[in-house]
Nucleic acid binder design. Structure first.
Lengths: 376, 376
DNA sequence: TATTAGCACTCATGCTTCATGAGTGCTAAT
DNA sequence: ATTAGCACTCATGAAGCATGAGTGCTAATA
């Protein structure tokens, strides 16, 4: 049981500790809280919190430091909503706008998205002074195939080109063993369009495959197999995540990582890990925290993660987050992160909208439901 | 003037210092060199080298440490060629082969090259225990255009697809203000092929542009402008460099970067710098060194760079290198780097060759001169 | 003339000691 | 339930000191 007053004390300790990075004494706390309470009373309460595992002592005659459990209680119940300042707003917006300008309005390709998110990471790490993480799927699973084409290089070399929604284009070159006559390749392209246009790569049905296979003449079986291979690869990409880290050096600013050994351990882990297994991905629009030993990975045991969801074009989801020592200003960072994620979403939405507004009549209508939002 | 014996002493000091990371005393030197010379003699010689600026003393009663000037003399004149060990060879080869397997034989696209070089950087940093750098141009300037196609999405939306040598494909989506009839777009694609196939993107002549413009009818002027814009963008990419860094954390292993401030300065610089302005790019096949204060960038003043050239497909050039404290084993690292670069070149050459051997008859013959090498 | 033995001098390093004071836990008074 | 008071703990930093590795210089030696 934690009394209300104890919670207030815990909150004050954490707020103060986050600021000073030094163990909090009963005296400092009394001054900071400015209630009518004496240090002795606070010491008693602190002793209870210590007993319950919300605080710990570096050594007998030192102040108290929050434990991971303490931080957890803090983010769950105690922290105030942080109202981002005008400076925050402006910093985020100017950072995003700088990126937006570099995007040509009529064009949006995966490497460009990659570059954009790279820059966004950079901006985020500069903004928060922590190491920034962004995650996105390689391919947006909600985009349907608009068009498939086969570029014929020679009679055994073909490039499949798939144009998806929002101007995303993917291609892959295949080389056949047996030559394929030009006409047959063109026929196959037409067939692929007929059968697959309007479908999402992840949602191609066995029925469609069957139709393709049964309609295809003998000479293009190999080419069709290549096409199916390509589409399968595309559909895999929907589940592959791109992860980017920026501002690793920021960690070295914090007293927690003055020990080079600690810093190296974490930096190595972050550098090696292409996987997102250690990253909590929030399923709602709220920010998620993973504090200290809540992390399974050893190098993260003394670190915290804050991650926000960031809806990208057409129902796809990206994530932005930060890593740092457990002693971080959770409410402020959560607010900034959330604001940043929203800004990024809006910005990408703008681009997509621009691309989708004048959807032509001769392409199949989108099957997806639009979210009910006011048009821009 | 530096006598021969002084050079030998300098060499020994550097070799020993690289190993121990501690100032070298006359006694340690005498033991290490094992000539019949007394410590007093060595001290005299060391005093001369100190005077000449090849050595310095941390404090009066301490051993000697090589200066940047000392290292420079060392790499220029003193160091022995290092013969890489069997372990080195095997490590490099297994690292490269691991990558090679992940490449599908018939397919080679820019993101895949990017991924490959990323992995190569990783392998290099693991191999050398330094921070690895790889540089490549975004587009190989020697590849000629094999085919241009226009994928028609609707009457105002078009995707240009350019297939270059070695299976590299680029595309870009454009949106017109005025609709373009299907037939006209197809005509333009045919025209573009006729005029530009076989040309390198960087070598499109004003004459070719003129031909295109004069042949094009009024309705496709806008589309042609888009095409030219795209080609211009491609030709720009030839001069844009992609730079990748891996293993930043390795730096923290060295005593030189135990000071977090120093480490942060360098890591920040490396993380920020997308530019290659600070990286020496060798013009010959030999390895280039940039030692300590030979670097203009302040954060690199205490660091050294070693860079090897790495010819990529078709006359294009990439670079691989490492960064670390000035105290590094120059001959060994140079040898490893050089070997690594050669391995990478050979591996990419294999892929390209495989792609070029069966060059079809119906594409124009290459205009480039082949280097006189035995076929694989 | 080149080398070396000898010696005084320097100075980083690590150890101990010591004083300081911030901070605690506990007890008894309010 | 709160608090004043007090003895106790212990990190911190300064000061002093011994140690010894390493030097520069001089004079002897080959």
């Amino acid at each position: 049981m934690v009394s209300n007053r104890q919670k207030q004390i815990l909150k004050a300790i954490i707020d103060l500790y986050v600021e000073t990075a030094e163990p909090i004494s009963s005296k400092a706390l009394a001054e900071y809280m400015n209630l009518g309470l004496s240090t002795a009373t606070l010491r008693n309460e602190m002793a209870v919190l210590l007993e319950q595992g919300y605080l710990e002592q570096p050594h007998t005659s030192a102040g108290r430091v929050p434990t991971h459990k303490g931080y957890r209680l803090y983010v769950n119940e105690l922290m105030h909503a942080y109202h981002i300042t005008k400076e925050d707003t402006e910093a985020v917006q100017s950072a995003l706008q700088a990126q937006q300008q570099s995007l040509s309005p009529s064009y949006f390709s995966p490497p460009e998205l990659d570059h954009l998110l790279n820059e966004a990471s950079r901006a985020l790490s500069a903004l928060t002074r922590y190491t920034a993480i962004t995650v996105s799927t390689k391919l947006n699973g909600m985009m349907e195939i608009r068009r498939i084409d086969i570029v014929i290089c020679d009679d055994i070399t073909f490039v499949f080109v798939v144009v998806l929604g929002a101007g995303v284009v993917r291609n892959k070159l295949y080389r056949m063993i047996h030559p394929v006559p030009r006409q047959q390749a063109e026929d196959l392209a037409a067939l692929l369009n007929r059968v697959l246009a309007g479908t999402r790569p992840g949602e191609i049905t066995p029925l469609q495959i069957t139709i393709l296979e049964s309609t295809t003449e003998e000479g293009t079986k190999e080419l069709l197999a290549a096409a199916i291979d390509f589409l399968k690869e595309l559909s895999m990409e929907i589940y592959e995540q791109d992860i980017r880290l920026k501002g690793e050096g920021n960690l070295l600013d914090y007293p927690e990582y003055q020990d080079v050994g600690k810093a190296r351990e974490l930096l190595d882990f972050l550098g090696e890990s292409a996987a997102t297994s250690w990253l909590p991905l929030p399923t709602t629009s709220s920010v998620v925290f993973r504090i200290g030993n809540e992390n399974l990975a050893k190098p993260l045991q003394e670190a915290s993660l804050i991650v926000a969801r960031c809806p990208l074009a057409g129902g796809n989801t990206g994530y932005v987050g930060i890593v740092g020592p457990t002693r971080m200003h959770y409410p402020r960072l959560a607010a900034r992160l959330s604001f940043f994620a929203k800004g990024l979403t809006r910005m990408l939405q703008d681009i997509i909208d621009e691309d989708d507004t004048d959807r032509p009549e001769n392409t199949p209508p989108p099957t997806r439901e639009k979210q009910g939002e006011e048009p821009n």
